[in-house]
């Protein structure tokens, strides 16, 4: 799963959200590193809708402005859980290896 997809599914994991709220959530989750643009966001939303991982939860007009709210489907929740488990296993293994690593001293003047 590519990072934008992971971030998008994560942003929808706790509650349904509309387009602009998703952009804000993704920026917050990634600590400001990923700023998804409108076209890119809707490209990802259309793809995930097509894959059945998300659905349109509500269509409403707020202050005269059209707004759709998107939510995870059961399949999307399952895909996110599987990816989270995979990442957790990798992180655990990385931490285990770091804790047992033997740090060798750097040799000055040696070729890299």
């Amino acid at each position: 799963m590519q990072e934008p997809t992971l971030l998008l599914l994560t942003a929808l994991a706790d509650a349904p959200r509309h387009g602009y709220a998703l952009i804000q959530e993704i920026a917050a989750i990634s600590d400001g590193r990923v700023k998804m643009r409108t076209g890119t966001l809707y490209g990802a939303l259309d793809r995930l809708l097509g894959q059945g991982l998300i659905e349109v939860a509500a269509e409403e007009v707020v202050d005269g402005r059209a707004r759709r709210t998107y939510a995870l489907t059961d399949a999307g929740r399952g895909a996110l859980a599987t990816e989270a488990e995979r990442l957790r296993a990798v992180a655990t293994e990385a931490e285990r290896r770091l804790s047992v690593a033997v740090v060798s001293p750097r040799v000055r003047g040696a070729f890299a």
Binding site: Y20, I23, R37, T38, G39, T40, L41, Y42, A66
Partner: peptide, 26 residues
Amino acid sequence: DELAVVFADTTAGAGPMAKIQELFDL
């Protein structure tokens, strides 16, 4: 309409370059 609203919210207070990049992406 939905795309236009998200564009407007995203670029509110943004500089010309950010708006151009957002437009290009849209």
